[in-house]
Nucleic acid binder design. Structure first.
Ligand code: MN
Ligand code: MN
Ligand code: MN
Ligand code: MN
Lengths: 218, 218
DNA sequence: ATAATTATTTAGATTAGTCTAAAAATATAT
DNA sequence: ATATATTTTTAGACTAATCTAAATAATTAT
């Protein structure tokens, strides 16, 4: 039996190894899990004993195939629940992440299969992230961070890198949502802040905002 | 913060004190929780320290008002989730209880409020049990156990006392569900087994079945 | 009223997950 | 190449929830 904590560590390892090197550092994992490095070491050991992870002392951790399968399944559940909350229960995209962190641990294959059917096999969650299919396959679409976008080009907003309510509410306040048209007007060399036209309205966003908004060239 | 285990003990105390004496025995609680009496004692102490329960050594345990409020809220969540699973996700009444045991612990007021709205404020769960409203009020309807029913009277099936899949599947196999018409034909004095006509079909049920089926006089 | 039985509590361990502080390994800078 | 800094692991302790075995209280039977 896999515990809730193990599931969360596995998911964290998965996400970290997608956005950085394949091998995940103990400190990075501890940071992501809001624990201390010593706790992360203990858990890495445990995951490795259970064959969810590959571990060599001082060399970081990677997931085994089993571990990856588990991670993807949790992510699938997380994102399907997010869709459910937004589409069926009147939640907004800034309200669902924390709750999905709870719901993703509910154990029932039939539940998730039926939820998927009930929602019409959605392909993306409310933040633009792809939903793995029943076989764990994930379809990635090309996307660019606003921080990497080119001046004078038109983009459409297709996702966020940070699903925290704080960031999403910032976007709400500036009328930016999935599908919004974003035009890059000017990049300020001094602090890399960016002048954009979002849905026709002028707006200046900081680098840290720009690093969390995904666009697609139009 | 209240733990999942605390919630389950509180719920068990609530159910036990509804069906027997107000004061719940340590052994009865341990039995219901599938633990040992010593574990129950420890938990009772903890609940009492947190003011969810009243406890006097050797005298059993009762819930405080706070404890009752918590119990009723968990039961509300449990039953709303059961309705959701049956009404929206194609589950049958014998498939939902265990899963609802997981879902009842999800913490989000908005989730449960919205689920209630989404389901159209259902008053009863798939097993005929009343769903407490937002204020914790429970409307009980009069019902008789089949084991207490009178010969030659016509009843309608309004609930079950045992929500286990085993019992519900037994009912499925005999075409009995909520709303089924049950006529009591004869009670065998030897073993108290009962001859009934269920939806027009003759059937003999044992005492232990009869003690788990709730009826309403027609 | 004693004795026997049953119920309950206590004592002491165990496991999962966490922590702090110290030790050891690795990486970086001079 | 050696010293310094950083990262990681180990050692030892804590809490929540559990267990077994033993002790004590309450109940029931004689
Ligand atoms: Mn999320
Ligand atoms: Mn998401
Ligand atoms: Mn149930
Ligand atoms: Mn029910």
């Amino acid at each position: 039996m896999i515990t809730l904590t193990e599931e969360n560590y596995i998911k964290a390892i998965y996400h970290l190894s997608k956005q950085g090197a394949e091998n995940v550092n103990t400190n990075a994992l501890a940071e992501a899990m809001n624990t201390k490095a010593s706790s992360a070491t203990d858990m890495i050991r445990k995951l490795s004993e259970k064959d969810y992870a590959n571990y060599k002392k001082y060399k970081g951790v990677t997931l085994t195939e089993t571990g990856k399968r588990i991670a993807i399944n949790i992510i699938r559940k997380h994102r399907l629940w997010e869709v459910f909350l937004v589409e069926k229960l009147n939640f907004t995209w800034d309200e669902v992440h924390e709750l999905a962190e709870q719901l993703e641990h509910i154990k029932s294959q039939k539940l998730i299969d039926e939820l998927d059917i009930f929602l019409g096999h959605p392909t993306h969650d409310p933040h633009g992230d792809p939903i793995p299919n029943k076989d764990g396959e994930i379809t990635y679409v090309e996307k660019t961070l606003l921080s990497q976008a080119q001046v004078n080009l038109r983009y459409s907003c297709v996702g966020v890198n940070d699903s925290s309510s704080e960031f999403l509410q910032y976007l709400n306040n500036n009328n930016i949502s999935l599908g919004s048209i974003i035009e890059v007007m000017h990049i300020e060399p001094f602090d890399k802040s960016i002048n954009i036209k979002a849905n026709g309205k002028l707006l200046t966003v900081s680098q840290s905002v720009a690093k969390n908004l995904y666009l697609k060239k139009l």
